[in-house]
């Protein structure tokens, strides 16, 4: 168990274990993963706030489960980018007590035969809890990506809000992409919604960019960067920026 009892920014290399954020704290955490299988549980005590940047190094395959429990009036924001080569199976499970607020943003590129799965589970267990997730996926070169988003508002969690948005672009006929949003609602006075968009890359965009001198590969990278821009513009983290620069030649 790692117990955070002072405000601040921390970088942590992790394999597995539990983290606890004490009450009334504001913590920014950069989690760097360098082992294949990782399970982490994070407890956010009352009135605490946590921003997590998940930084994935070159690990093949990558299996990761993160359970986050938000006590009353706590806040969680997570940013996860999986631009690695290799298969991955990522599970984010969030359990929210009353007046808590959870936001999760992800960007995943599945390339060169990768098989990747992102499974999110947001449980609004008590009243006035708000959850939001936004997932971006790119599938190319015979790869596959499955985004499965579960939102469940439990009985008694009135005035809660559960929303998920997912976008996925598929670059070629041999690649497969799927988005499966699921919402289970057991309370009347709530808001819940989802949106999903899945489509092939627009060849006319590639032609347009090429007609200005960009190679086909540069054109595709430019479209990827543009597609991820709403997500990347939110991220301000040195470790993730290094990964972006290396993988996408993306500079802030």
């Amino acid at each position: 168990m790692v117990n955070y009892d002072q405000n601040g920014s921390y970088i942590h290399k992790l394999s597995q274990g539990d983290l606890r954020i004490d009450t009334n704290l504001l913590i920014t955490l950069t989690l760097v993963f360098d082992v294949f299988d990782t399970q982490i549980k994070i407890d956010l005590k009352e009135n605490s706030s946590l921003i997590v940047y998940y930084v994935l190094k070159e690990i093949k395959p990558f299996n990761f489960t993160n359970v986050i429990v938000l006590e009353k009036n706590s806040n969680y924001t997570g940013y996860l980018l999986d631009l690695n080569e290799g298969d991955s199976n990522i599970i984010i499970e969030i359990k929210q007590k009353s007046l808590s607020n959870a936001s999760f943003y992800s960007g995943i590129i599945a390339d060169k035969n990768d098989k990747k799965i992102l499974e999110t589970k947001f449980y609004n267990e008590e009243n006035n809890s708000v959850s939001y997730q936004q997932n971006y996926g790119i599938v190319r070169n015979n790869a596959s990506l499955f985004i499965k988003g579960l939102g469940k508002i439990e009985k008694g969690a009135f005035n809660s809000n559960n929303r998920q948005d997912s976008r996925l672009i598929i670059f070629d006929e041999n690649s497969k992409g799927k988005i499966e949003p699921l919402l289970f609602i057991d309370e009347n006075e709530v808001q819940a919604s989802h949106s999903s968009a899945l489509g092939r890359i627009n060849e006319d965009q590639i032609f347009y960019l090429q007609s200005r001198g960009l190679s086909k590969e540069e054109a595709k990278k430019t479209i990827i960067k543009g597609f991820l821009a709403p997500l990347l513009s939110r991220i301000n983290n040195y470790e993730i920026n290094l990964v972006l620069k290396e993988k996408l030649n993306y500079e802030f």
Binding site: N202, S211, S215, I223, G226
Partner: peptide
Amino acid sequence: SVDERAKAGLFLAMQYPMTIPGV
């Protein structure tokens, strides 16, 4: 290729220019 033509000095101003979101 298209980009080689552009690099050789061609430029096409299109009737219906494409939108490139986020770029």
